[in-house]
C-alpha cells in the first residue's frame, strides 16, 4: 500500500485542551477519503496542521514519503498539498481570473524568469491565463471570471474555493466542508465537481452532509474529541454502533 499522505501519532493541544490525540491518518493514492465527526471534533485543526498553518505539538506528517512536519506552508503547497476553507477565505478585491492566475504563476515560478515574474505585464503569461480560464470554465465560473470576488454569489465563491485549490495542481486535496452553507438543492453542483476530479488527485473530504459523504467516499474516518474513533468502508461505518451513538447523541442541528 502506498500512502500519499500519512500522519504518525499526531497530537495538538491548545493549553489544556487536546484537539488532536494520536491521530494516525493514512491517505492512499487516488483516495476518496472522508473525515467526519461532530462539531469541535478537531477536523479543521487537523487540516491546519497538515498544511502547516498550525504546528503540531508532537508527531509527524509525511507526504509522498517525505517528512514535511517542519516545512513552511508554501513549500507544502509546492509539493502538491492544497486545501479549501470551511469559511470562505478568498481574495475579495481580486477577480477569480486574477486569483487563479496568481496561483498558477506561483506554482510555476521556478520555470519563469525574473523578468517574467517581476517586470513583464501579467497578460504576457497567456499560457497561465488560459489554463486559469479553462479551470474556471470547468467549474462554471467563466461568466463571472472578471468580476471582483466579493461581488460573487455565495455558491460561486464556494466553487472558487475549489478552483483555487485545483490551480495548485495538487496531488493531495484537503476539502474542508466544501458544501457548507450551500442550500440543499445546490450541493449537487458541488458533488458533480468532486465526482469529476481526476483520479491522480487523492482527496480528503470533511463534510457534515451524510448523503454527500456516502455518495462520495470510499473510506471514512470518524474523529471524536480529537481522537480517531474508527475507520472503514462506508458500509462498515454505517453499521458501527459507536458511530451511531456519537451521531444520535449529538445530532447536527
Amino acid at each position: 500500500m502506498t500512502a500519499v499522505l500519512r500522519t504518525e501519532d499526531l497530537c495538538k493541544s491548545f493549553g489544556g485542551l487536546k484537539v488532536t490525540q494520536k491521530v494516525n491518518l493514512s491517505l492512499e493514492a487516488g483516495a476518496r477519503h472522508a473525515l467526519i465527526g461532530p462539531n469541535g471534533a478537531g477536523k479543521t485543526t487537523l487540516i491546519n496542521q497538515l498544511t502547516g498553518v498550525l504546528r503540531q505539538s508532537s508527531g509527524s506528517i509525511w507526504l509522498n514519503g517525505e517528512d514535511i512536519s517542519h516545512l513552511p506552508p508554501y513549500l507544502r503547497v509546492s509539493r502538491g498539498l492544497a486545501r479549501t476553507f470551511q469559511i470562505n477565505s478568498l481574495f475579495p478585491k481580486l477577480t477569480p481570473l486574477e486569483a487563479v492566475t496568481a496561483t498558477i504563476c506561483e506554482r510555476d515560478r521556478d520555470s519563469l524568469s525574473v523578468f517574467d515574474r517581476r517586470l513583464f505585464p501579467l497578460t504576457r503569461r497567456r499560457a497561465e491565463i488560459d489554463e486559469a480560464y479553462d479551470l474556471l470554465a470547468r467549474l462554471n465560473l467563466a461568466d463571472v471570471c472578471s468580476r471582483a470576488t466579493h461581488e460573487l454569489a455565495y455558491g460561486k465563491q464556494r466553487l472558487l474555493e475549489v478552483a483555487l485549490a485545483m490551480a495548485v495542481r495538487p496531488r493531495v486535496l484537503l476539502l474542508d466542508e466544501p458544501a457548507a452553507g450551500v442550500p440543499e438543492g445546490e450541493s449537487d453542483e458541488m458533488l458533480a465537481v468532486l465526482a469529476e476530479m481526476p483520479r491522480d488527485i487523492s482527496i480528503l473530504l470533511i463534510e457534515h452532509d451524510m448523503s454527500l459523504v456516502f455518495r462520495f467516499a470510499e473510506r471514512i474516518t470518524v474523529l471524536v474529541s480529537g481522537a480517531e474513533l474508527v475507520s472503514g468502508t462506508p458500509a462498515e461505518i454505517a453499521a458501527d454502533e459507536r458511530v451511531q451513538e456519537v451521531y444520535l447523541g449529538k445530532h447536527r442541528g
Binding site: T51, V53, P72, P73, Y74, V77, S78, A82, R83, F85, S89, L90, F91, P92, K93, L94, A99, A102, T103, E106, R107, L164, A165, A167, V168
Partner: peptide, 13 residues
Amino acid sequence: DNQQRAVAIGIPI
C-alpha cells in the same frame, strides 16, 4: 487581500 489564503496558494509571503 488575504494572507491566510495567500499562504494556502503557495505564495512565500
